[in-house]
Every structure is written in structure tokens, then in C-alpha cells.
């Protein structure tokens, strides 16, 4: 019997965990080119996320413009803004509701490390969403420009398929 497992196809899951490398690759390619993010606007960064999805920056070029309002249909959670202690349980619940395989993109300094809201005596901000859920791509900025978010998507594709869609900018360091 053939079954569709978490990350690929396997035969008789319990008995012979066989994986088909080629099928796996094809599936990954499909996933990377149709990332469905969740509509999850938290704070200021969410506006830049919307700008990215709109006509000028056109996230649809990368097959990632299908924002879903429910976590059950999404594979990417863009954490776009500050995560507070009151919001944290909600965020974790949403993450758990997403079907695997799933990815998380931390957008903006707030999601990465608490950003500008970390000071002595702070009592309500989670200093980095990676304390709550595993993060795949970090996009710094306050807020990051839409181009930066697009680059974040390309990085995620690279992570999924192992290949970069475009030749990247030459590294200067």
C-alpha cells in the first residue's frame, strides 16, 4: 500500500519506511512554488506585508499571494509584528492548527527579538517569536521593505528545494 506521509511517499509506513527521493523533490518543488501564507497581521509590519501582496510588488509572481484567513489551509505563518504575552498562546494555537509541512517567517525586529520594545522593566513583549515556535526565515527591518520580504520568500524556497530560483546578489562579505 502506498501512503502519503508527512514529508513524502512511503510504502507500508510501519513496515518498510521507504522514501522516493525523486518524488520527494517534485513535491518540494510544488510546495516551494505555491506557498500559501496565513493572513496574520499583528502590527505595523503587517501593512508592509499587505503592500508586498499588492500590485506593485506582486507576491503572486512567486505563487505566494494566496493569503488564507484560516490556519488550516496555510503552510506559512508570517509573524508580522510584536508578539505580546497575551497573544502568545493564540499564536501557538494557530501554529498547531496549520497542517504539516509548515514554515514560519519572522518579519521585522519585533518578531525576531522584541525589537524596539525591549527595555529594562518591560513586562509584556515576547523577545523573539522563536521562543514560541521554530522559525525558518528571519527578515530584519522595522518594518522590512517589501523587497526584503520577497527575499525572505526566496530564501524559504531555497530552504525547501535546496536551490535558489534566481542567482542571488553577490555576497560582499
Amino acid at each position: 500500500m502506498v501512503c502519503l506521509g508527512e514529508r513524502g511517499v512511503c510504502l507500508e509506513k510501519e513496515v518498510f519506511p521507504v522514501k522516493f527521493a525523486v518524488v520527494e523533490k517534485v513535491l518540494d518543488l510544488a510546495r516551494a512554488n505555491s506557498i500559501w501564507p496565513m493572513t496574520f497581521g499583528l502590527a505595523c509590519c503587517a501593512i508592509e506585508m499587505m503592500s508586498t501582496a499588492m500590485s506593485r510588488f506582486d507576491l503572486d509572481r512567486f505563487g505566494a499571494g494566496v493569503f488564507r484567513a484560516t490556519p488550516r489551509q496555510a503552510d506559512l505563518m508570517i509573524v508580522s509584528g510584536t508578539v505580546t504575552k497575551k497573544m502568545a498562546p493564540v499564536l501557538v494555537t494557530l501554529y498547531e492548527q496549520m497542517p504539516s509541512p509548515k514554515w514560519v517567517l519572522a518579519m521585522g525586529n519585533c518578531a525576531i527579538s522584541g525589537g524596539p520594545f525591549v527595555f529594562e522593566g518591560q513586562y509584556n513583549v515576547i523577545e523573539g517569536v522563536d521562543l514560541l515556535v521554530p522559525v525558518d526565515v528571519y527578515v530584519p527591518g522595522c518594518p522590512p521593505r517589501p523587497e526584503a520580504l520577497l527575499e525572505g520568500f526566496l530564501k524559504l524556497e531555497e530552504k525547501i528545494t535546496g536551490k535558489r530560483r534566481f542567482p542571488g546578489p553577490e555576497s560582499r562579505w
Partner: peptide, 21 residues
């Protein structure tokens, strides 16, 4: 309060210029 970012508390910890952003 799901996005309570403590601005008022922060204001008491920063100088006038630092609070501008």
C-alpha cells in the same frame, strides 16, 4: 491588550528625544 506594547511605561524610561520613534 493583545498588542499592548508598553508605550506609556517606556516614555518614563526614555528621554524626550528617544521616545520620538
Amino acid at each position: 491588550g493583545y498588542l499592548h506594547r508598553m508605550h506609556e511605561k517606556m516614555a518614563e524610561n526614555r528621554s524626550y528625544l528617544q521616545f520620538l520613534p
